[in-house]
Amino acid sequence: MDNLVQLTDVTKRYDHDGTPALHHVSLAVAPGEALAVMGPSGSGKSTLLNLIAGLDRPTGGEVSVGGDRVDQLSETGLARFRRRRVGMIFQFFNLLDDMTVLDNILLPAQLAGLAAARARTRAGELLEALRIAKHADAYPARLSGGERQRVAIARALVNRPALLLADEPTGALDTATGEEIGELLLDLNHSGQTLIVVTHNPDLAARYARRVIRLVDGQVASDAAVAVRP
C-alpha cells in the first residue's frame, strides 16, 4: 500500500549555520494511520508538522503527501495543497475572532471555490457531528476552549482532507476537555481519517495513536507501534 506521507532525509535549518531543527529525518505514514509525534520542547515536532502541512519548506530532503512533492510546490501550489489534502488544528485554535463559528468553518471551502450550497451542507454536517450546531452564529470568543477546538476541527475537515494534522490539540485545554477532544480525534481515525498528532503528553499519545515517534534534537530517536486498545 502506498504511503500517504513520505519524508526522505529531510533537514530544516532556520539559521544558515545554526543547529538544524530537523536533521536527516525519514518517515512514512500510511493512509488511515494515527501517528503521535512526541519529544521535548525544541525537538522539532512542530517543524515536522509544518513541513508536512506545506506551511514551511525543508532545507533539504523530500516531502511527499498523497503523491504531491510538497517541497517542490509553488506558494500557490502549496495553498491549493493545504486546501485539498490537509486539515490542521492548533494548540491555540487559531480561529478568526471577527467571524462567526459557521463562517470560520466555511472559510476553507469558500477559498477552494466550493459551491455555496454544498459548503453549507458540509458545514452543517460537521456542526452536528461535532455537537456545536447551536453555536453556529456565535463568535469564537464566546465559546469554551473545548468548543473552540471542535470548531477548529470542523474547519480542518470541511474540505474532506486526506490528512489531519494536530499540533498540541489538547495543550490549551483542561484534562476533561482534552480527553473529549482526544476521543473525537480517535473517532475520526476510526472512520478512516489519517491523523498525525504532535503532543508532549505521553498519555494522549498512548491512548489515541497507534504509532508513536520520538524526536530528540531534530532526529527520530524512536518509532514504535502502540498496542491497540480493546
Binding site: A79, R83, L107, L111
Partner: peptide
C-alpha cells in the same frame, strides 16, 4: 499577521 497566517494555513493562495 497572525490571522494572515491562519488564512494561508487554511488554503488562501498568494493571489487571494
Amino acid at each position: 499577521v497572525h490571522d494572515l497566517g491562519v488564512f494561508k494555513a487554511v488554503g488562501m493562495t498568494p493571489r487571494q
